[in-house]
């Protein structure tokens, strides 16, 4: 709906260059720690990369497969808890724990998927909330193993094997590498048969089925990849922060923030989640630093407002405004006239 015209040759060149530019951008982000050295800035960059990575992982399910998960914290948390528990209880290196945790999350996502993918749209969102909450309650109550609501903390023991580093730059490089992998995966999906199948089922599931696409299978693949990558990010988070608590890493609030960043940036695009993180993380840092003491909750209130404005006026995210600014104006204008239109489709 955003671009109605035939792409001109210039545009198609731009389209061909886009992935190259994307990868270059990500690569340059990885090189940032070479230039920036102070602790605060590095932490800040890490945060941007972290949110971009987890939102990009969500994007594969939410943006590409149309599976609007509100329970991605479950996959993230499974990754974080599995690798930390393996490390603390059995001395397993987080590098192995990361793979194990991600496979656990992948299996969990397949279970959720097999159980709920017959359902559509918001039922899926509700089901993911329910599964994530069941997991959170289980973790809170499994005090002996999981540390309950206080969570688990890892003692600081630097070493490559422990995925714990003296300098923050290493963490930044690591997170950038993961973001790079997620971005590249997304790009590969977009250009593959899987990507076309996802694009089709996002538009019309019945038509996609009639063209031979096993929509359930395709969605399962998407959610599995998404869960796996979310869990990888979870492990990286756990061994950077060195503390995981169920309310932070398994809560609904976290799940919502993940989705929010992807949506604000632009769902179903490679760069959208990164753009969302680049805009939202500094904003939240600023608001938190400025108003945390006086006006607790202000930043989430502003988040919520941005989210509403975005989905109503710019449902394709900020990236669509950058790609085609005029379409946004058209859309706002159409919205205005649409609100006086007598009849709209009840459920699209």
């Amino acid at each position: 709906m955003s671009t109605m015209s035939t792409p001109s040759p210039k545009e198609s060149i731009a389209r061909r260059l886009a992935p190259v530019l994307t990868l270059l951008l990500l690569a340059s982000l990885m090189a940032l720690p070479l230039v920036v050295t102070d602790t605060y800035s590095l932490h800040f960059i890490w945060k941007v990369l972290f949110w971009a990575a987890i939102a990009a992982a969500w994007n594969i399910a939410g943006g590409y497969a149309g599976l609007f998960s509100l329970g991605h914290a479950a996959f993230f948390g499974l990754g974080a808890y599995t690798s930390i528990l393996l490390y603390m209880q059995a001395g397993v290196s987080p590098w192995i724990g990361m793979i194990v945790g991600s496979l656990v999350a992948l299996c969990f996502s397949l279970a959720i998927g097999l159980l709920t993918l017959r359902l559509r749209g918001s039922f899926f969102a509700l089901a993911t909330i329910a599964f994530a909450e069941v997991l959170r309650i289980a973790v809170v109550n499994g005090r002996d193993v999981t540390g309950g609501s206080e969570g688990l903390s890892v003692s600081f023991a630097p070493g490559l094997v422990n995925m714990i580093f003296q300098d923050r730059a290493s963490y930044v490089v690591l997170m950038a590498a993961v973001l790079f992998v997620i971005g590249a995966t997304t790009l590969l999906i977009e250009r593959s048969a899987l990507g076309y199948s996802l694009a089709a089922l996002r538009e019309d599931e019945d038509a996609a089925e009639a063209l031979g696409i096993d929509t359930i299978r395709v969605k399962l693949i998407a959610i599995a990849i998404s869960a796996f990558l979310s869990a990888v990010t979870g492990t990286l988070y756990a061994f950077y922060i060195l503390l995981i608590e169920p309310t932070t890493v398994l809560g609904i609030g976290f799940s919502v923030e993940i989705a929010l960043i992807a949506i604000i940036g632009g769902m179903g695009t490679v760069l959208g989640p990164l753009l969302g993180a680049i805009l939202i993380v500094p904003l939240s840092e600023y608001l938190r630093a400025e108003f945390a003491a006086s006006l607790q909750g202000l930043y989430l209130l502003i988040y919520g407002t941005i989210l509403i404005v975005m989905v109503v006026f710019l449902p394709n995210g900020l990236i669509s405004a950058i790609r085609d600014p005029r379409s946004v104006l058209r859309r706002v204008r159409r919205r205005k006239s649409a609100s006086s239109r007598p009849e709209e489709k009840a459920d699209a």
Binding site: G62, V256, A259, L260, I263, I306, V311, V312, E344
Partner: peptide, 16 residues
């Protein structure tokens, strides 16, 4: 009548 994603996240945003 908006797409599913708008309905879910507009009301999620309202909740926030």
């Amino acid at each position: 009548g908006a797409p599913q994603v708008a309905q879910i996240f507009a009301t999620v945003g309202l909740g926030l």
